[in-house]
Simulated scan of single mutants.
Amino acid sequence: MMYTVSSELYRETAARLCDALDGESYYSGSLEFVFDGMECRLVVSVIAYRRREVAPEGVTEPISDLVPVWWKFHTVGDEGECLNDFSFAEMKRYVF
Score class of each variant (00 low, 15 high):
residue 16 R to W: 01
residue 15 A to G: 12
residue 37 G to D: 06
residue 41 R to A: 09
residue 21 L to V: 05
residue 23 G to I: 02
residue 55 A to H: 14
residue 61 E to W: 08
residue 27 Y to W: 07
residue 60 T to Q: 12
residue 24 E to S: 10
residue 24 E to R: 13
residue 63 I to C: 03
residue 22 D to E: 11
residue 32 E to P: 08
residue 49 Y to D: 15
residue 20 A to C: 11
residue 21 L to T: 02
residue 39 E to M: 09
residue 31 L to Q: 03
residue 40 C to Q: 04
residue 32 E to G: 11
residue 33 F to N: 00
residue 38 M to W: 04
residue 40 C to G: 06
residue 26 Y to T: 09
residue 20 A to V: 06
residue 17 L to Y: 00
residue 28 S to P: 09
residue 38 M to N: 05
residue 45 S to K: 09
residue 41 R to M: 06
residue 45 S to I: 07
residue 26 Y to N: 08
residue 43 V to E: 03
residue 47 I to A: 04
residue 59 V to C: 14
residue 17 L to Q: 00
residue 30 S to L: 12
residue 47 I to G: 00
residue 27 Y to H: 05
residue 29 G to N: 08
residue 52 R to A: 13
residue 18 C to I: 09
residue 31 L to W: 02
residue 20 A to N: 08
residue 62 P to R: 09
residue 15 A to E: 13
residue 41 R to K: 10
residue 57 E to G: 10
residue 37 G to N: 06
residue 46 V to G: 00
residue 27 Y to Q: 03
residue 17 L to T: 00
residue 50 R to K: 03
residue 58 G to Y: 12
residue 58 G to F: 09
residue 30 S to F: 11
residue 41 R to L: 04
residue 42 L to G: 04
residue 43 V to G: 06
residue 28 S to V: 11
residue 39 E to G: 08
residue 48 A to V: 01
residue 46 V to C: 02
residue 16 R to G: 02
residue 59 V to K: 15
residue 15 A to L: 12
residue 49 Y to P: 06
residue 57 E to N: 11
residue 27 Y to M: 01
residue 36 D to Y: 11
residue 55 A to L: 15
residue 27 Y to E: 02
residue 27 Y to A: 01
residue 28 S to E: 08
residue 54 V to P: 09
residue 22 D to M: 08
residue 46 V to L: 00
residue 47 I to D: 06
residue 53 E to W: 12
residue 24 E to L: 08
residue 58 G to A: 05
residue 29 G to F: 03
residue 37 G to M: 01
residue 32 E to C: 10
residue 47 I to N: 07
residue 37 G to F: 02
residue 52 R to P: 14
residue 62 P to Q: 07
residue 27 Y to G: 03
residue 14 A to V: 05
residue 42 L to S: 01
residue 53 E to V: 14
residue 48 A to L: 05
residue 28 S to N: 08
residue 58 G to Q: 13
residue 54 V to Y: 15
residue 32 E to Q: 12
residue 36 D to T: 08
residue 19 D to T: 14
residue 18 C to S: 14
residue 49 Y to H: 11
residue 35 F to I: 07
residue 41 R to D: 01
residue 49 Y to G: 12
residue 27 Y to P: 00
residue 63 I to H: 02
residue 56 P to T: 04
residue 57 E to H: 12
residue 45 S to W: 07
residue 63 I to P: 02
residue 20 A to L: 04
residue 30 S to D: 13
residue 51 R to E: 15
residue 53 E to D: 10
residue 20 A to H: 07
residue 43 V to L: 09
residue 22 D to F: 11
residue 51 R to A: 15
residue 58 G to R: 15
residue 28 S to H: 11
residue 37 G to Q: 00
residue 63 I to Q: 03
residue 52 R to Y: 14
residue 33 F to D: 01
residue 50 R to A: 05
residue 35 F to K: 03
residue 34 V to M: 11
residue 38 M to Q: 06
residue 49 Y to E: 13
residue 49 Y to N: 13
residue 51 R to M: 15
residue 19 D to E: 13
residue 57 E to D: 14
residue 19 D to N: 13
residue 42 L to A: 01
residue 18 C to D: 10
residue 47 I to S: 02
residue 48 A to P: 00
residue 58 G to S: 10
